[in-house]
Design a protein around this nucleic acid. Sequence first.
DNA 1: TAAAAATACTCCATAGGTATTTTAT
DNA 2: ATAAAATACCTATGGAGTATTTTTA
Lengths: 315, 315
Amino acid sequence: MGKQATISHLPLGSSAQLDLRHFRYFIAVAEELHFGRAARRLHMAQPPLSQQIKWLEEELGVRLLDRNTHYVRLTEAGAVFLKEARRVAANAERAVRLTRQVGEGTAGRLVVGFVSQFDGGIVSMVKSALEREYPELELQFTPMDTLELVEAVRTARVRAGICGVPMDEEDFTIERLARAPLVVAMPEGHALGEREAIRLSDLGSVPLVLFPRTANPWIYGMLRERFAAAGVVPRVVQESLSPFSIEGFVAAGTGLSILPAWVCSHRRGVMYRPLKESELPVEVALFYLRGNDSPVLRRLREQLMAAISECTVRG
Amino acid sequence: MGKQATISHLPLGSSAQLDLRHFRYFIAVAEELHFGRAARRLHMAQPPLSQQIKWLEEELGVRLLDRNTHYVRLTEAGAVFLKEARRVAANAERAVRLTRQVGEGTAGRLVVGFVSQFDGGIVSMVKSALEREYPELELQFTPMDTLELVEAVRTARVRAGICGVPMDEEDFTIERLARAPLVVAMPEGHALGEREAIRLSDLGSVPLVLFPRTANPWIYGMLRERFAAAGVVPRVVQESLSPFSIEGFVAAGTGLSILPAWVCSHRRGVMYRPLKESELPVEVALFYLRGNDSPVLRRLREQLMAAISECTVRG
DNA sequence: TAAAAATACTCCATAGGTATTTTAT
DNA sequence: ATAAAATACCTATGGAGTATTTTTA
């Protein structure tokens, strides 16, 4: 009953194993219907080919080829085996191709969350560009709001998220995609338009239309801190989650707003001035659970950055 | 430029080829997530398994397993390769199984012609019995009349045919399935019913209801010859292709008939007496082009004979 | 430090080579 | 008679073995 220390050369029944080689060889012979030509096509000599086919027939217990010196024909079983062998060979190739593609991020499925309010169309652009170039790639972008997104990434409901940082999360990998200056939006003809750039301290008594805390708590918090540092209590008269809606309020004279440059629509009736506090970074990032990196993610990140720089150049 | 006389040892780039072995090994490791256990499951030592996996990863150019001494995990590419590898392995097994089954006649597709007028249900019985037992087997029985059937077998429109013999065809293989005596059908109470058996010479002046020549030219011809040999000119008053219809005429008193025993319905109003000329063989056979034999055909023949003897015993 | 994967090396089974024989039209 | 598959025999690649080292949680 003692456990055998080593395995050591057990004499197996039929020794050799069926291998892809046998499928490849059989396909060649069945297609050429000539051992010599098939051997040439396989870059090998005829005798070992004959032997392998013979071995295959013995292994299957079925004659696959009806042959003599003057013809080679498929038997019924041979025809079936040819069909199946082609399937096996094709599947094997597909396995290799797909796996390599996943390795270089051009195949696979990826679910990413994004905050659709702040997306100006880049997400759809990236999705269609990638899926057009790599048909084996499937991207799913799920719209969510910022806090929901962070939770979804943490619980792996989505593999990654795209939203504004700074983010104070411990176990996320955060890959910065773009940095945008904050600008002050004001109705055309507003007095502050005279200045080249605006300071937070200039906004002390001005009515403001801002994103609510939930839109992005970190940016919200950072802005509040900077207001406090400038010795100003901001007067928020209206909140809205939608940049477009906010610009509506600005144009209507409800108040001024502070927006990341990339969401500005440049609509009539609104003008923009840079915010002097240029050290206020508002960045967009791709983030995911530490260790959850993958070639597909890297491919997505590249494409996102390319698309963003494209927009920046054109815009 | 001269053609190389021998192939001889060209040093290939990456020497070894991808083989089913690699798929099998990877599946084992991916399922166990432990090289040692996987090796045990594969009845081999751990080091060569590690080597083969390493070779596979190098061949694919992708890391499939994220591993160290304390864990083994699938990478994204590894998960994809596992799925594909399982498909390949399953297809390979299926190829072997299906081919073996074709070899023993329990898989494949077979188109057979039969003369439905003379089929008492045996064909459907055999079809359903075989297809129930062997799900990979597909039988198609095509109804045709006798001459059409012979032509269809000759031109390979169908692989085989079932009909009555003798048949004077040169290049058919003809496998007798059953022999049935000819019986004389007469209306109940007919004078000839007094006799134990009927001679053709008894039928000289009797009105007859017979199959037309087209139903089966060989049996028709043989019967004519025997009538002639008996010095009788048969008086055919009605012809019909359907045994059931013929028995209708017999019951109605139109005439007597000569039928193979197996098509007798034993309906009320008709009685049967054996034909004395017992050396008149009417046989049913399976026939096909010489050389077109196959395990499936043999399986069909066995099943047909079993079904026929079953019917004979019960009837 | 202990368990597991990786490395180092050895060996023989077998795929594949060449030369030759058999076979079927 | 000839072309092609089968057989005989040989070689050497590489898959799989054992022993050992490296690694990391």
